[in-house]
Nucleic acid binder design. Sequence first.
DNA 1: CCGCTATGTCATGAAACTGTGACATGGAGG
DNA 2: CCTCCATGTCACAGTTTCATGACATAGCGG
Lengths: 224, 224
Amino acid sequence: MAGILLVEDDPSVRTALELALTRQGHSVTSYSTGEEALDHVRSRRPEIAILDVMLPGIDGVEVCRRIRKMDQLPVILLTARGDDLDVVVGLEAGADDYVVKPVEPRVLDARIRAVLRRVESVSSDRITFGDLVVDRGALKVALAGREIHLTPTELRLLLELVRHPGQVLNRRYLLRAVWDHTHVADSRLVDACVQRIRAKIEPVPAEPAFIHTVRGFGYRFSPP
Amino acid sequence: MAGILLVEDDPSVRTALELALTRQGHSVTSYSTGEEALDHVRSRRPEIAILDVMLPGIDGVEVCRRIRKMDQLPVILLTARGDDLDVVVGLEAGADDYVVKPVEPRVLDARIRAVLRRVESVSSDRITFGDLVVDRGALKVALAGREIHLTPTELRLLLELVRHPGQVLNRRYLLRAVWDHTHVADSRLVDACVQRIRAKIEPVPAEPAFIHTVRGFGYRFSPP
DNA sequence: CCGCTATGTCATGAAACTGTGACATGGAGG
DNA sequence: CCTCCATGTCACAGTTTCATGACATAGCGG
């Protein structure tokens, strides 16, 4: 399922985990030292790293820190010691989760999925914002269960806004992203298109719930 | 730091957690039932929900499922039972983390931060100065949890000040950075704009907590 | 070729924003 | 204590920005 990077120095634990995770459908690559792991991150770009904390050489927490410095790669720390302080230090180092050994394979699997789900929620095909469902794969938009017809340009603009939820996007950016940059910068084109989308997806277009105007800057898509 | 929705039916645990989280700098709203929590999610848009699993009426896992149906809101489940199956079910319901009580406040805090960090790494970059939150991606400013409306120029000026916390910025610099250089240097423009911002973000405008006047030089933004 | 949809442009009015100047205030130094 | 000058306060009108609806053109399928 996912390209997992596993780092664990105890061979028997490593083999057991690798087997268990593989059985859950993941594809696993494992190492026994932090240096190897960092090389792997750089060259092979795994989807998630699972690091034992107690490692010879660079320890897991430090590996996590270095990964964070260069990448957003999700990290789960794994340890025999469940000391409160260790947990805090591990999470502060940028880990996404901290799991105490021994751990049931299905629990570890569930935690891996939880972390990946969160990471992928931004790149997934379907996003739900209250009543509004935007399906990027099928290129469909539905409001309260009813499908809404958007024209191609409207759809591209909405997708662009939805790709950056909560962010203000200015008109110049949107012009370049949705149209090509052959257009003049001070055009009301974006405005007009936003109005058309609002007319279709906003229950009360005068009080937009989804696409908000930020005077002087641009537009912001955010859930109601 | 974060607008937390806490749901816990045991009053003593609820009070203790609320106190502990508040002490960590979070702003917490708590309820004892899932129904109330769902209403709160709809109307108040918290940043993260912490749900006890065992609740009268709708249980925490079900609350989590319903939140997921309508929103991307991060959820941490909290429970006394650390049964493996419970963990798996909770995470499959869409929770981002699953924490077993009793939990050290600083551990819970670290886990909250880990989840928020992951969520925010893809959304906005916000800076917090005490009660004041400046979100540079969403171009939003909030004071003690209440959103403050700033006009474009006010916002640009505040962002410029916030970009250099602790530094004194003179009027000429601010004029060039925020306005275009077509303005004369000896105008009251900057002063007037600073006043307008103060009127909005300073609890006591006469004794500014954020934007300090440095007589003869300019203005300095620094946390209270 | 015709009709229909999609899309870009424009005019208009309403609302929000902003610069300005006049005046008040208050602090620092003499 | 007094004076001066930097800063705070305020109101208002000119300007900017945006929503809305109408309209012209282009593109496409029938």
